[in-house]
Design a protein around this nucleic acid. Structure first.
Lengths: 188, 188
DNA sequence: TTGACAACTTACTAACTACTAAGTAAACTA
DNA sequence: TAGTTTACTTAGTAGTTAGTAAGTTGTCAA
């Protein structure tokens, strides 16, 4: 009865449910069902839903920080970095069936427990800060062309990606690609 | 015991709750509490939550179609129309406390009853279609400058506004204004 | 081989969810 | 003024939610 990776499997299932139905829309029972395990087993690994939610966003933050620290990413030029950032959202979208973490959490922010709110806020700020730096450096290197502050441009691009995965899900999956093309076009 | 506008007051309260906590995060009880009325009174006006949700989005669709049909809006130039569209989201944001209808609904789309899904989809397509037309006409008139299809640009702008009200709520309310400035800058 | 521990189980609980049936009081209508 | 309708009420329902306490079993270390 070892199967120590149950914890990780819970998180993977919870992640999918969160990004399908939102934070208030997912519960322990379907996770337990999919894992062939009782409800209380989930509570063994994550005593409260707040713990699980926090762990989910924390893992995503660790992943983002790990990736952005990688030489392979750091060595990319400005366009390469932008493409990588957009590809995160293409993966989130999963062909128009899901939305991104922040989109799923932020639209029901007032219903989130405090620990989840603060993790979501931190992930948001970390992604925004990284993107701002890429945009600033890219403009200075002559790769990007845009007006105004890099911080504002970062908000625009991240907002557009977050909004586009949501809109793509209810209209056409292709709309995410449309948005990404336009983001690229607006930086030339 | 007349007070016939209870129906409208229910909708107004439900609207606020929906845009604070999302569809699955709001329930009849707090609405009844705020109105000083019993739970069952809400069910008298809206038998099911699906009915209430549908009525909410339908009303928003009617409003959007009414406004866009108005001479005052139709007579605006391209920049004026764009500004009006952005102002919808400034109103939605309410100083960074709420999100827009579509953002609230789309991020938990798989948890919505069918009637609400289809209303949300229709509102989305109607807004996108209107914006596309404005962008196309604006480019032809020489007001806007951008590359690629107008439909793609419409997705970009609407995605950005929808995402920005969400991001503004958890970071800084000012971020919506930053995004709007950048939308404008990217059309010049 | 014993005892501690990890990873569960069974069997619950309290609170909340959407929803309903039956009754009531005031207003409007024939 | 009798009957109908409108806008509720009281008093429930069944289902789901997050969470808990106490017991069970396999693994491993001393």
């Amino acid at each position: 009865m070892s199967e120590t990776n149950t914890r990780a499997r819970i998180m993977d299932l919870a992640q999918d449910l969160l990004r399908e139905k939102g934070y208030t829309g997912f519960s322990y029972t379907p996770i337990a069902g999919a894992l062939g395990v009782r409800n209380a087993a989930i509570h063994y690994h994550f005593p409260t839903k707040e713990n699980l939610g926090e762990a989910l966003v924390e893992r995503e933050r660790r992943r983002f920080l790990k990736w952005t620290g990688l030489k392979a990413i750091r060595d990319l030029d400005a366009w390469g970095k932008l493409d990588w950032f957009c590809s995160i959202y293409e993966r989130y979208s999963q062909g128009g069936t899901r939305v991104c973490y922040l989109g799923a959490l932020e639209s029901s922010f007032d219903a989130l427990p405090e620990a989840v709110q603060s993790q979501a806020q931190r992930l948001n700020l970390e992604m925004l800060a990284w993107l701002e730096e890429v945009l600033e450096a890219g403009r200075q290197a002559g790769d990007f062309r845009y007006e105004g502050r890099a911080a504002g441009r970062a908000v625009l691009i991240m907002s557009a990606l977050q909004g586009a995965v949501q809109i793509a899900r209810v209209t056409a999956p292709d709309n995410l690609e449309q948005a990404i093309q336009q983001i690229r076009a607006s930086l030339r």
